[in-house]
């Protein structure tokens, strides 16, 4: 294929720290006042997309669903080298669980043109579900390969890649279009370049709202979600115990005694 690959990267803006506060009334996150960054796992998805473009040519489109402020995450992705950013944002999208999120993203991707490969991060550092990619694959009717550790090649509308499971590494071949979620093994994400930053500043970020999607609001956001959060609480911290000092022998003895006491050995 001479025209190259149409690559779509899904990213999410997350709080920089995970020490977050909750609004006890609504059970929702207080996102204000916390610095927001691209989900660290998604940076590996971006890196994967950029490397694919370097090797095979094409375009890297980055898409994010979130509040209007998530536009910054898209600009940061463009600064890394992505060609185009699309913000999926509408009040009716708010409060979506992974089902409603994946449905909205799938619809937006379809609206924004053809794709050969959709790349997602392994999971987000806030929600930590890893479900949105695979669920999106079902909405789109495409294959999904999770935990991709290395892309070997794309040829004749087929991709070969490796994925890392708990007990080993599989080498797989799949037809395009498809969805993959990538792990950190794909390679260290690049930093933004000066040229990229300039491009990011100038870039026009298109927004998709439900006006463009034309979906029933009942299918979206909180109303369209199958799961509901009923309670949010702070877990008991791991009880701190003793802090001991002494000679190396005494310390080793104390640890050994603790291992015995807790029946670990």
């Amino acid at each position: 294929m001479s025209v190259g690959l149409n690559i779509v990267i899904c990213i999410k803006q997350v709080p920089e720290t995970t020490e977050v506060e909750f609004d006890k009334e609504t059970g929702r996150l207080k996102r204000e006042g916390v610095a927001a960054v691209i989900n660290p796992f998604d940076e590996y998805a971006i890196e994967t997309g950029l490397r694919l473009r370097e090797k095979h040519g094409g375009r890297v489109k980055v898409i994010s669903m979130g509040p209007p402020a998530a536009e910054q995450a898209l600009r940061d992705a463009i600064a890394m080298g992505c060609d185009e950013g699309i913000l999926v944002s509408d009040r009716v999208f708010g409060g979506a669980d992974t089902w409603a999120t994946s449905l909205t993203l799938a619809k937006s991707i379809q609206l924004s043109g053809a794709h050969d490969i959709i790349i997602c991060g392994l999971k987000t550092t806030d929600g930590d579900t890893g479900q949105t990619g695979p669920e999106m694959a079902e909405h789109l009717g495409e294959p999904c390969i999770s935990y991709v550790s290395q892309i070997i090649d794309v040829k004749d509308r087929k991709i070969t890649l490796k994925r890392s499971l708990d007990d080993g590494v599989e080498t797989l071949e799949a037809p395009l279009p498809l969805i993959i979620t990538v792990s950190k093994d794909v390679g260290q994400p690049r930093l933004a370049t000066l040229r990229g930053r300039l491009a990011a500043k100038k870039a026009v970020i298109n927004t998709i709202t439900n006006k463009e999607m034309g979906m029933n609001p009942k299918e979206l956001g909180l109303d369209g979600s199958y799961t509901r959060v009923t309670k949010i609480f702070t877990p008991e911290p791991h009880a701190g115990g003793e802090v001991i000092e002494g000679t190396p022998d005494q310390l080793a003895d104390a640890i050994y005694a603790k291992l015995k006491e807790t029946k670990i050995i």
């Binding site: 995970t18 977050v20 550092t125 806030d126 930590d128 959060v229 009923t230 309670k231 609480f233 702070t234």
Partner: peptide, 14 residues
């Protein structure tokens, strides 16, 4: 757990 285990959420399917 969510947010790196800093919070726990109880969820149900409706």
């Amino acid at each position: 757990p969510a947010y790196g285990g800093n919070i726990m959420a109880t969820i149900y399917t409706q």
